[in-house]
Design a protein around this nucleic acid. Structure first.
Lengths: 237, 237
DNA sequence: TAAAAACTGTGACCGGGATCATAATTTCAT
DNA sequence: ATGAAATTATGATCCCGGTCACAGTTTTTA
């Protein structure tokens, strides 16, 4: 088991600050300053990190693990908005909009996060303006993703949406093997359905079809072997 | 007819810079500096301001008018992503992500815009860090809107989506009268359908139902009188 | 102001995906 | 390893909204 956490109490989470894109570009001394302000926390799978509507006033950066951000529709269905991984952050709207948390956040596996309080962060931004440029860049990327998601949902081609999610996971979590790309899914079927915005049964059926077509191969419930990436790409509408 | 444009050539668009939230917080002299960098342009209804995929490298701020941002799905259907009004801006991803334009932008009526070139803007941000905080705030707001849109689209309750759009327009463009709120719609039915992500015929039918229920009253094609706001709010899922 | 063009409303029909029910499978705990 | 619990697959049915067709209206243009 590799130890990529730092509990020595001396380095003051410099590791965490270093690996976060937001702070790339800062030098050693500046990073040290940032690290002073960081508070770290650990969560187990299934634990809630943030409650929608709460007024947590800190920026949360994911150091290790995966986090899903979601809301409940009035019918009680869960709608997943984001899947955050190492280096991603959330809670920015708490800081800048001054509003309450826009969604629930739940650890999908053992997860360690870094938190920076609102006031500390605002000061950081003033002292190191490049940070805000990085944040703007990250927000733009996120906007683009949502824009594409909306475009896809509007199109209503369920096959296309499933293909696009599989490709996304392949890129983020896939491992190339001799037969194809082995994807360890971050979600159960239920989760994937909620991420895509369709019913669980539907995704089961479509995945079966993809398997019958020889494009994928399901390995247990949590892994999918992508045999024919090109074919999947052609499904994208 | 009120004259809220400035063509004197002397004030150098200070008006424009002033009314834009991004630059609120700057003083007279700073605004003047900003105004120096601004280039102004006019568009008629239907004219294209930005082409998806083009590498326009400037931030565009809407001074007056309305602009729709949209993409085409592979089936050729138009999907409207944003409706921008006075004070809104777009093109930020061109500046920060360094990528190409993420969508088409078209004037919905006579529209005047202010443009700032990439380099000029980057310099502005460095000189006045508050600007980037304002931008981050605006991006967060936009993200929240998209998040809600996605949540709505996932829910697939068409009634709810229509109600939410009507309420949005009522707030932005509504005028209170004795009988209710008179909304001048920024879109045709086609446009509303594309904004919501449903078929034109469906929105016609649903609006007729709402009218039969006494909740709204259609006034010609371009206006809707909102008689019972509460009832509409209850439709929101 | 009249004709043309664009937009909107409505009926008929159809299909994809939601829902419900149940069986099969996988995962987990002991 | 084995039974229990959770997850997934699959069949049957239903219904909402898309699509097509066409009529009615509004808006534009000359």
């Amino acid at each position: 088991m590799k130890t990529n956490s730092c509990d020595c109490g001396t380095c003051r989470h410099k590791l965490c600050a270093q690996r976060v894109p937001i702070f790339s570009g800062l030098n050693e001394e500046e990073l040290s300053h940032v690290a002073d302000l960081i508070q770290r926390r650990q969560y187990l799978k299934g634990e809630i990190i943030q409650l929608e509507g709460s007024d947590a006033d800190c920026l949360t950066i994911i150091n290790q693990g995966k986090v899903k951000a979601f809301r409940y529709t009035q019918e009680g269905k869960e709608q997943i908005l984001y899947l955050f991984s190492e280096g991603d952050f959330f809670g920015e709207s708490n800081l800048f909009g001054g509003k309450e948390a826009a969604y629930h956040a739940e650890a999908l596996e053992q997860t360690s996060i870094c938190m920076i309080a609102r006031n500390d962060f605002q000061e950081l931004v003033r002292r190191y303006p490049e940070i805000s440029l990085k944040i703007i860049g990250a927000l733009c990327t996120r906007l683009e993703r949502l824009e594409t998601t909306i475009q896809n949902m509007g199109t209503r081609s369920v096959e296309g949406r499933i293909s696009s999610v599989l490709l996304e996971f392949a890129e983020k979590y896939g491992v190339k093997g001799s037969k194809g790309i082995l994807i360890t899914l971050p979600f159960s079927r239920e989760g994937m359905a909620s991420y895509i915005g369709i019913a669980r049964e539907t995704i089961s059926r479509k995945l079966t079809l993809l398997q019958d077509a020889g494009i994928i191969e399901m390995v247990g419930n949590k892994r999918i072997l992508l045999l024919n990436e090109e074919a999947l790409r052609r499904e994208l509408d």
